[in-house]
C-alpha cells in the first residue's frame, strides 16, 4: 500500500505517493532529483546523507519518507542562493575543507546544525559535533578550520 505525503523541501511544497519502505534519502534523490544529498553507507554511520528535518540535522538514510510527512526539509541545495554561497560553504572553500566533495553536503548540513546550537564552538566541540560525519580525504583538519572560520563569519 502506498501513502501520500506532503512536505516542504528547500521552501518548495511537494506532494508525493510513496511506498512506506522508501527511505527519505531515496525520496530526495530519486523522486525529487535532489542528488546533492549523498549515500555513503548503509548502517547510519557515515553522515553523507545528513539533511535538516524541521531544523535538526538527521541522517536521511534512517528516516522513512512517510515519517517526513508534514515536515520541513532542507538539503544542501537549499543552503546557497543562486548568486552567493552560505558562509559555511564559503568557509569550506577558503579553508580547503573538501577534496572529492562527496561527504561535503552532509558535513555542511551537520556543521550548520552544530553552529546553530553553539555559536562559538571550541575545536574539541567541533570535532565531537562532527563525529557522525566521515571524510576519507581531508583528515578533518581543514573541515574543523572551516567550521571555525564560518563561526566567525556568522557571528
Amino acid at each position: 500500500m502506498t501513502h501520500t505525503i506532503s512536505l516542504t523541501v528547500n521552501g518548495k511544497a511537494h506532494c508525493s505517493v510513496v511506498e512506506p519502505r522508501l527511505l527519505l534519502v531515496h525520496y530526495l534523490r530519486d523522486v525529487l532529483g535532489l542528488t546533492g544529498t549523498n549515500i555513503g553507507c548503509d548502517t547510519s554511520q557515515c553522515g553523507s546523507c545528513t539533511v535538516h528535518l524541521d531544523g535538526e540535522a538527521v541522517k536521511a538514510c534512517t528516516v522513512l519518507a512517510v515519517q517526513a510527512d508534514g515536515a520541513t526539509i532542507k538539503t544542501i541545495e537549499g543552503m546557497a542562493s543562486p548568486t552567493s554561497l552560505h558562509p559555511l560553504q564559503e568557509a569550506f572553500r577558503e579553508e580547503h575543507g573538501l577534496q572529492c566533495g562527496y561527504c561535503t553536503p552532509g558535513m555542511i548540513m551537520a556543521a550548520d546544525a552544530l553552529l546553530r546550537h553553539n555559536h562559538k564552538p571550541s575545536e574539541a566541540q567541533i570535532r565531537q559535533g562532527l563525529e557522525g560525519n566521515m571524510c576519507r580525504c581531508t583528515g578533518y583538519q581543514n573541515i574543523v578550520k572551516a567550521v571555525q572560520n564560518a563561526a566567525l563569519k556568522m557571528a
Binding site: T37, R93, C100
Partner: peptide
Amino acid sequence: TSVKRVEDPRFLRGQGTYTANLQ
C-alpha cells in the same frame, strides 16, 4: 600559490556529478 579550488562551488552546492546521481 594557494589558488582557491575551481571545482569547489559545484561540490559545495550539492551539484557534483557523481555516477549515482545520473538519471
